[in-house]
Amino acid sequence: MGYVMDIKTDDYSIRHDSESATVFLRGFLRLDGMEKYQPVMDVLLTAVEQSAELTIDLRELEFLNSSGISMLSMFVVKVRDKGNVTLTLKGCDKVLWQTKSLKNLQRLMPSLTLVFA
């Protein structure tokens, strides 16, 4: 398995903490198209390969554009099809998009756990 670098820019950061099996997404994710989201997807896929129980912490992800939610949807479908992964999404009920969109992701994968703080 190749080592996937964490990603950090002025606008956002993606960090995989292997110890807690958690990927943290923070800031403003407004990448242009699915292709640009591939590195983010790679971090998530690598994390899910390493652990059967994965948490994605979105609490500090204030903005996510349409390509971003599309990427997240595809990731959830992949995890569901993989079949042996327990996935948890941590959201913040003060971030409007998280209160709406994360519920739709649960429709794609009913076993998905949503935790709002």
Binding site: F63, L64, N65, S66, I69, S70, S73, M74, V77, V95, L96, W97, K100, S101, N104, L105, R107, L108
Partner: peptide, 20 residues
């Protein structure tokens, strides 16, 4: 079915991001 949900998710997400 997946794609329909994804499309709906993206659409609603777009709206809610607009609001945000």
């Amino acid at each position: 079915d997946d794609l329909e949900i994804v499309v709906q998710t993206i659409m609603e997400h777009g709206d809610v991001m607009d609001t945000q």
